[in-house]
């Protein structure tokens, strides 16, 4: 598998685009992330970090959603360059 090459969403920097491949998390949190548009195949943009460094705001299907590192650590995919 190519999974070794996958990056974590939490590694992506502000301004970067990211295509989700998989969510390695289970339960309610996974379902909630899915509902918000963090779905495999969707492309999101890293907007910015909170003044204290965490959480981070993401643009996902035309809305802004903030995630803590604990969540974005479990979202894997490819970094597809800057906006």
């Amino acid at each position: 598998m190519t999974e070794a090459k996958l990056a974590r969403l939490s590694d992506a920097n502000p301004g970067e685009r990211f295509r989700i491949t998989t969510l390695k998390i289970e339960g309610t949190m996974k379902r909630r992330l899915l509902d918000l548009g963090f779905v495999p195949g969707s492309e999101i943009t890293v907007l910015q970090k909170s003044p204290l460094g965490d959480p981070t705001a993401y643009r996902v299907s035309h809305t802004t959603i903030a995630l803590r590192k604990e969540e974005s650590d479990h979202i894997y995919g490819e970094r597809i360059g800057n906006e």
Partner: peptide, 9 residues
Amino acid sequence: ATALERNLN
């Protein structure tokens, strides 16, 4: 209407 894509879900 300003965030139709997510709302259509």
